[in-house]
């Protein structure tokens, strides 16, 4: 099992991992620090398993997942007749990798090779859609793309202004219609203008909506349709913006938004503020929708492409 140790040591050198480590310091120190204490205990008895269970649940990893995870740990320990909590260190990390990387390579690159490409941002209220759009716009512009932000949240007071200010800061194009306009018509008009202006990527904002509001979800599916009618296969990316402090409701959000708009990925925001963030793992396990990007701060460049290996490494680097 030295493999993982090697993997970790080689990872340590790369620059992104450092950023992960820093951004996720809170997460590591918060919940998983306790894991270290537990694994340093003298005897491997039931209370150790209970505490591990407790730690993972407190990280918002989801009760079902945690119960099955810890049962697996128990079995492994029985099978190999292990007697020291220390032995659990690598088993935990290995099992984590097995569970969440699933032997597949997850492509976190955004599908933007279209003319123009359309990225639709969806999510519940207050998760940080507008800020995420600004960050993605910044990143794409750095890569030399011309970007247009589309103010599709015509409902919330001040939403259009908020996106406009971001577009000015980032220096991207911006499309808006008056507050209260039908968001589908905003999308339609924005596409026409983007075609004229030769925009590479459209970043479409939508109003925050709770996933159990049927009317609002219908509205979203209409937006989705309108985009696809104007540009073949658009939106090329539909990203669910998810607040990392969210609890188990994150699973419901991912499931229902996925049903309505077929998500291509998740942007996990505010990860720098939470000591938990295990919802990232729970959502992936429950829906299979990959996390593509994470927000690690309030600055416009505090957005990283997500790498589940880096993430798990970030969580457990102090454990192994």
């Amino acid at each position: 099992m030295g493999f993982f140790k090697n993997l970790f040591q080689s990872k340590k050198k790369t620059k992104t991992s450092e950023k992960y480590r820093l951004g996720m310091q809170k997460t590591r120190q918060g919940v998983f620090n306790r894991l270290n204490d537990v694994l340093s205990e003298a005897t491997l008895d039931d209370s150790v398993f209970e505490e591990i269970e407790e730690i993972f649940i407190m990280a918002d990893m989801g009760v079902d997942t945690v119960v099955s995870f810890v049962n697996h740990l128990r079995d492994t320990v029985d099978l190999n007749a292990l007697d020291s909590p220390e032995d659990l260190r690598e088993i935990i990390v290995e099992e984590m990798f097995k569970r969440y990387t699933k032997d597949t390579i997850i492509d976190t690159n955004l599908d933007i090779d279209h003319d123009p490409a359309v990225i639709l941002f969806v999510g519940v209220n207050g998760v940080g859609k507008t800020t995420s759009i600004a960050k993605v716009a910044h990143q794409l512009q750095e890569e030399g793309k011309s970007v247009m932000m589309v103010a599709g949240d015509t409902f919330r007071a001040g939403a259009i202004e908020q996106l406009r200010i971001w577009s000015e800061r980032v220096g991207s194009s911006f499309f808006e219609k008056p507050a209260g306009s039908d968001p589908s018509s905003v999308m339609y008009d924005a596409i026409q203008e983007a075609k004229e202006e030769n925009i590479d990527v459209l970043l479409c904002d939508t109003a925050g909506r709770l996933q159990n509001k049927k009317n609002l979800m219908n509205e979203l599916s209409k937006i989705h349709k309108v985009l696809g009618r104007e540009i073949p296969n658009a939106p090329h990316e539909t990203l669910l913006v998810l607040d990392a402090t969210t609890g188990q409701n994150g699973i419901s959000q991912a499931k229902i938004f996925n049903e309505v708009t077929t998500l291509s990925g998740i942007v996990l925001t505010k990860l720098d503020g939470t000591a938990k963030g295990g919802i990232a793992l729970a959502v992936y396990e429950n829906t299979g929708v990959p996390i593509k990007m994470i927000g690690l701060g309030e600055g416009v460049d505090d957005l990283e492409y997500f790498d589940i290996e880096e993430y798990i490494y970030g969580l457990f680097s102090d454990v192994v």
Binding site: I57, A59, T245, T246, T274
Partner: peptide
Amino acid sequence: LDAMTGQDAVSV
């Protein structure tokens, strides 16, 4: 406080 907050709610 957002009702959808997870285990973090308490430390917040």
